[in-house]
Design a binder for these strands. Structure first.
Lengths: 322, 322
DNA sequence: TTGAAAGCGCTAACAA
DNA sequence: TTGTTAGCGCTTTCAA
């Protein structure tokens, strides 16, 4: 691939002059400019981003760490991030932690090796103080996406509030027993429970941690069986919801007549399922844009103090399943 | 971030010696090694990948171009590619062309700027001679994934054969009229038609290009209406299939009794749909691994002539929808 | 308006 | 076994 030095030789000017032309400096004689540009075009010159990044800090690269790109929600998120980044001339190096903290830690190192200008991360252990300390010590600005991390810039949806909103809605739809699919420390579940507790339904709600389809099937069967009232399942994400729907179908339980189901993330398939899935929608594009904007801001104004911590709100998308 | 030169100063050795230690050279005195390693650890040294890539060619970076990461199939593919690449110490720069040739073209330039060691691409216009010429002229090895590009290394599933397989299967299931959702130049459709033609069903098959749900709904309604026999819809991908299923449901058509539906890609949701979706499965992990292996091979042995063009075979995954 | 020179962080000769 | 030197491709002074 041709370099500035080579173009300089071919056009009989100095290499810095080539640099000036190619970077659009106005202080170059028109004839030289023409000659250089023509030569660059002819040889399809592409600047060496590595050399550029070597002295100035700007590599025009973001590191993007997600937990699982094969989850439609994160796939959408990455797509939006890529789009937003590209608009500012940034490319993204993608990492998939697979919910493994070891990977997450390793990728934060890799990201530094490439001297990325910033990092967008979907953290696994955003509540872990050690993790936050580690991140803060990095010499790269990091913005946390979809989850709030204390002391770090975060662009996220308030899961606690979203969970409460789901509870309120389900109560209004005359569901009286509740099952959450996911971890018990999940903010959605905390908010969900608390809202239910206020109306005295605390005792009627439980959670199960998804392991595999057989386990889910059995747990659901048991739960459905002991239902005195109409129950609702709140799935931690749409993938779980899809499986719940399938399990209920094979159990012969009608949705939403006997049991309601609501998902989380409002992935695009939801609108086409049978029954169509109610779900909690997160403003993915907005999150991506704000996160990128915030990161660019941090890059342009390093050393700024105030944290960015502005939760976005989720929205209920109601369909047939509730 | 600390550099080799700084470590050299702190430990009173020369910078190349630091380089030797950190690269595991055995020709360094144990005490010096210890001192240097301790210092590097203490300051959390991370080598500068840009500086490294600047002279040697190896950046340990792959460019990965896909058409649409938000499609579950490609999301899976990217995940597998990332995993396979990481095993060889590679990171990936991700690009999403959104089926826009202009983007594709631009990203091929960006990829060169970062001096990636190789490119894995899901091409949009793999049949276009200009595109192939352009790619061949790049000084970066490119491996085409999921689609075959004449004259380029390609790791793909034979869509023509897969389409023929679908035709054969559907005929065996007593379907007698056929509708393909997708472009008429799609290899799947070509193979599908040809196989049907051999049995005299050519006149009974047509295709529609998906635009939006309303259009799909109307086209399906018309098609269903004029069905003299039991018909089957072959969707170009599972996303289309999901929409077809939904449209048929709202048309009151029962699947698979009146109309069969088969998808393509066998994305994970298929097994949970109602009815569960038959689909054509592509060996994603295998494709990713072979593509990465092939690319590494090209990088290690540049200038090798023979092309890699070995189609993998697709597999029918039969479920309730047919 | 242009060029010469230095230097970013590293690897790769070559010398000692 | 270690250090010196040069150079990858670029930007950034500083002179001319």
């Amino acid at each position: 691939m041709i370099t500035m030095t080579e173009i300089a030789k071919l056009t009989h000017v100095s290499q810095p002059t080539v640099s000036r032309v190619l970077n659009g400096s106005q202080t170059v004689a028109p004839d030289i400019r023409e000659r250089v540009l023509a030569c660059a075009r002819e040889h399809d010159y592409q600047f060496n981003a590595l050399a550029k990044g070597l002295q100035g800090s700007k590599t025009q690269l973001f590191g993007v760490l997600v937990t699982d790109i094969s989850n439609g929600f994160f796939a959408d998120l990455v797509k939006q991030i890529e789009t937003a980044a590209r608009k500012s001339g940034y490319s993204i190096i993608l990492f998939n932690s697979d919910y493994n903290p070891r990977n997450e830690r390793e990728y934060l190192d890799v990201v530094r090796r490439y001297r990325v200008d910033g990092v967008l991360a979907v953290p696994i252990r955003e509540t872990s103080p050690e993790w936050r300390e580690y991140v803060k010590k990095l010499d790269v600005p990091v913005v946390t996406v979809t989850r709030r991390a204390e002391g770090l810039d975060s662009v996220y949806v308030d899961h606690f509030q979203a969970g409460a909103m789901v509870a309120e809605y389900l109560l209004g739809r005359d569901f009286r027993r509740f099952l959450f699919i996911g971890k018990d420390y999940d903010g959605k579940y905390t908010g969900f429970r608390q809202a239910l507790a206020q109306t005295g339904f605390d005792a009627w709600t439980s959670n199960i941690v998804y392991q595999d389809d057989t386990q889910l099937h059995q747990a659901l069967a048991a739960w459905v069986h002991q239902l005195p009232d109409r129950g609702a399942v709140f799935a931690g994400n749409d993938i779980y919801a899809l499986r719940v729907l399938d399990a209920l179908r094979s159990l012969g339980v009608s949705v939403p007549e006997e049991v309601g189901v609501i998902g989380f993330d409002n992935t695009s398939m939801g609108g086409y399922l049978n029954p169509r899935l109610s779900s909690v929608s997160q403003p993915i594009a907005q999150m991506a844009q704000e996160a990128v904007a915030r990161l660019l801001d941090r890059i342009q104004h390093p050393g700024q103090q105030e944290l960015f911590d502005h939760p976005l709100s989720a929205e209920l998308v109601l369909r047939e399943s509730t």
